[in-house]
C-alpha cells in the first residue's frame, strides 16, 4: 500500500486536490485515502470552503500583472462552433484577444438552437477567460462553475457572481489536450447547464 494512502496528506496536498491540480499516482493515492479517512474529508471540506470564500473575495480585487504571457496564434476573426454536451444547445464563441493579465484567450458560452455538434476549442496549457450567459435561468447571487475531464474528474471549479446576466471568470488551470465538460450549478447545487469544451 502506498505511503500517501497510509498517512494523512499535508495541507498542501489537500489544496492541490481542491484546486484540481493533483494528477497521476498522487491523485490515486490521495483519493484512496480520502475514501477511508474522515479527518481528511473534513479537512478537504474546510479547504473547499476557504477557496470558495477567497475566490469570492479576490474576484473583485484588482488582478496582479503576470510577467510572462503565453503566446498562441491569433485568428483574424472570431470562430463560431457548436458544442457537445448540451450539444445542439450551446455554442462557444472563441474571441481571440491580445494577452492580458491572467489569460490568453476568451471563450463565451451561449445557449443557441440547432448548432452543429462540434466541440469548441481552447488552447491547451493556457489560461482563458470563460464567460457564460445565464439569461433564462432563475436569478441567483452566485453560480458554481466546474470543468470536468472526460473521466468525470473535476479539474477546476469556481464560484462566480453574475453581472447583467453574464458570468465571467479566468480559468487559470492549464488544461491538457482533451475533451472537457463545463458545468454550471445554481446555489442549491443543481446542475442547470452543461457545455462541451475541447482543449488542443
Amino acid at each position: 500500500m502506498s505511503k500517501l494512502a497510509q498517512t494523512h496528506p499535508s495541507e498542501e496536498v489537500l489544496e492541490e486536490y481542491a484546486l484540481g491540480r493533483l494528477t497521476g499516482p498522487k491523485l490515486e493515492q490521495f483519493e484512496e485515502h480520502l475514501l477511508v479517512c474522515a479527518q481528511c474529508q473534513d479537512g478537504l471540506e474546510e479547504t473547499d470552503r476557504f477557496i470558495v470564500g477567497i475566490k469570492q473575495a479576490a474576484g473583485t480585487a484588482p488582478r496582479p500583472e503576470r510577467k510572462r504571457f503565453g503566446r498562441f496564434k491569433l485568428l483574424s476573426k472570431p470562430v463560431w462552433a457548436g458544442a457537445l454536451a448540451a450539444a445542439a444547445l450551446a455554442v462557444v464563441v472563441w474571441m481571440p484577444r491580445q494577452p492580458a493579465a491572467g489569460y490568453d484567450a476568451e471563450v463565451s458560452l451561449q445557449a443557441m438552437r440547432g448548432a452543429e455538434a462540434v466541440a469548441p476549442a481552447v488552447p491547451a496549457g493556457k489560461p482563458f477567460l470563460l464567460k457564460a450567459d445565464v439569461k433564462g435561468l432563475p436569478p441567483a447571487s452566485e453560480f458554481r462553475l466546474e470543468v470536468a475531464d472526460s473521466g468525470g474528474a473535476v479539474v477546476w471549479r469556481a464560484t462566480v457572481s453574475p453581472k447583467d446576466a453574464l458570468i465571467s471568470t479566468v480559468v487559470a488551470r492549464k488544461l491538457g489536450a482533451g475533451r472537457y465538460w463545463v458545468r454550471l450549478y445554481d446555489p442549491a447545487g443543481a446542475l442547470v447547464r452543461e457545455y462541451g469544451l475541447e482543449s488542443r
Binding site: A86, A188, V192
Partner: peptide, 18 residues
C-alpha cells in the same frame, strides 16, 4: 437533457431559487 430538449426553450432549467 438531449432527449428532453425543447426546441423553443432549448435548455432544461431547474427552478430552485434560494
Amino acid at each position: 437533457r438531449r432527449d428532453r430538449v425543447d426546441v423553443e426553450s432549448g435548455i432544461h432549467i431547474v427552478d430552485s431559487r434560494s
